[in-house]
């Protein structure tokens, strides 16, 4: 078989994926980029190479603040989720007998099966002044007045963490169970303590699982509208919430597109920074 026909066959196999990516990523991205450079004249969309929408990001304080709030919430959620998910994945991988691991994983991801919106509203009720958290603490005498938990950043972070701990547990668990027990045995034989084994052997080897989950958490969290809208009580606005306001009444698609492009830029930078810092290619 000639090299030419091999090449043609290769393109043939790659074509569906390429077409899919072109149709559902590249083309929409180009359209969104072009839209972000358009302006609205009343209700009329004026195409062109205008930078007005990006200039608005600098001139309107609430837009810059929305980016800052989104980043703060996303980073908090990512760090807290990792800190909670890692021990959970560890316990499932190494402390739960193998025959029970599937059930343990099933229980860990059970909340995925409920509606995202319903779950958010459920958290609103749990965290309310009359909710179970406040009532329990009042009953135990830990507080004398109900705490304001709902409609706060704490509520938003709680709702997100509940969701993303499940995701991170899965990616970290998948990484942990692939590690040969010989790594730990070798480290112990060489005199490493349990902590040193974890710190210098297990943790570096599970970084790909952590980072995969962390990146997914970052991407999904920073672009999410529902959780901050329901649980945050609009006490501060994230970028997706500001995008929705632009679309809701005035249908300002150009400004919304510019904000979406900025959001995408942040995600790209976050990925590049993480990849460079961790040198993922070497892992």
């Amino acid at each position: 078989m000639s090299a030419g026909s091999d090449q043609a066959r290769g393109w043939g196999f790659a074509a569906p994926a390429l077409l899919w990516t072109m149709a559902f990523f590249v083309v929409p991205f180009v359209v969104m980029g072009a839209m972000s450079l358009a302006t609205l004249d009343g209700r009329t969309l004026v195409w062109g190479l205008h930078l007005d929408n990006y200039a608005e990001l600098a001139s309107k304080a609430y837009l810059a603040r929305a980016i800052f709030v989104s980043l703060e919430i996303t980073l908090t959620v990512t760090v807290v989720s990792i800190l909670l998910a890692y021990p959970l994945a560890w316990i499932i991988a190494f402390r739960v007998p193998q025959r029970w691991q599937r059930l343990a994983l099933l229980l860990a991801i059970l909340p995925f099966w409920t509606s995202y919106v319903v779950r958010s509203y459920a958290w609103l009720l749990v965290l309310a002044r009359e909710g179970v958290v406040n009532q329990t603490m009042l009953g135990l005498g830990l507080i004398s007045e109900p705490l304001t938990l709902a409609n706060t950043r704490f509520a938003t972070v709680t709702g997100f963490v509940h969701f993303f701990v499940m995701l991170l547990t899965l990616t970290i668990y998948a990484n942990l169970v692939q590690l040969s027990p010989n790594y730990r045995r070798a480290a112990m034989d060489l005199g490493a303590s349990a902590f040193q084994t974890f710190r210098h052997v297990i943790l570096p080897l599970t970084l790909p699982g952590i980072m995969t989950g962390a990146f997914l958490t970052f991407v999904l969290c920073i672009g999410d509208y529902i959780t901050p809208q329901i649980l945050g009580g609009n006490t501060e606005l994230t970028v997706p919430q500001v995008i929705m306001v632009q679309l809701g009444r005035r249908a300002d698609f150009p400004l919304a597109a510019a904000l979406a492009i900025v959001l995408m830029g942040i995600v790209t930078l976050a990925y590049l920074a993480m990849a460079r810092w961790l040198r993922l290619d070497r892992l």
Binding site: Y121, G131, A150, N151, Q229, G233, N234
Partner: peptide, 18 residues
Amino acid sequence: AASVAGVVAAQTALATGE
């Protein structure tokens, strides 16, 4: 204000005593 809420959230907040 404790919150700035849409229809369902405002109704829930009032009904639950939030």
